[in-house]
Simulated assay, not measured.
Amino acid sequence: MKKQSNKNTPKPDFIFEKKNYIVMAIGIAVIALGFILMAGGGSDDPNVFNPDIYNFRRIRLAPTIVLIGFGIEIYAILLDPNKKKKQ
Rank of each mutant, 00 (worst) to 15 (best):
G41C: 07
N55S: 11
L79Q: 08
L79K: 06
P10Q: 11
Q4C: 02
I36T: 10
F56N: 09
K3T: 08
V30Q: 07
I15R: 13
S5M: 07
K18T: 14
F16P: 03
I53P: 00
D13V: 13
K19A: 15
E17Y: 00
G42V: 04
D45K: 04
F35A: 09
G69V: 04
A39Y: 06
D80I: 01
G27V: 05
D45R: 04
R57K: 15
N55Q: 10
I77P: 00
Y75P: 01
F49E: 12
P81C: 09
F16S: 11
G40K: 09
N6F: 04
F49A: 13
M38S: 14
G71W: 01
D80A: 03
N47A: 15
N6W: 03
G34H: 02
S5I: 02
P12R: 11
N47V: 01
A62L: 06
F56K: 10
M24H: 03
A32V: 14
A39C: 03
I77C: 08
I77A: 12
L61Y: 01
I74T: 11
F70V: 14
A62F: 03
P10L: 12
I74F: 06
R57G: 07
I15T: 11
G40L: 09
N50E: 12
N82S: 12
R57N: 12
D80P: 00
L61P: 01
A32T: 13
A62N: 06
T9K: 13
D45V: 03
F70C: 15
Y54A: 14
K18M: 13
Y54M: 14
M38D: 07
I28W: 05
I22Y: 04
R58M: 10
S43K: 03
K85Y: 05
T64H: 02
K7P: 00
R58E: 11
L78P: 00
N6K: 06
V23K: 09
I31M: 14
G69C: 08
E17P: 00
G71L: 14
V23R: 07
I65Q: 07
P51F: 05
T9P: 00
I28V: 15
Q87M: 08
R58Y: 05
I77N: 04
G69N: 06
I72K: 04
Y21P: 01
K84C: 03
K83F: 02
G69L: 08
L67F: 09
K19S: 15
I26G: 08
I74W: 03
M38Y: 02
F56H: 05
F70H: 04
P51C: 07
A76G: 06
I31D: 05
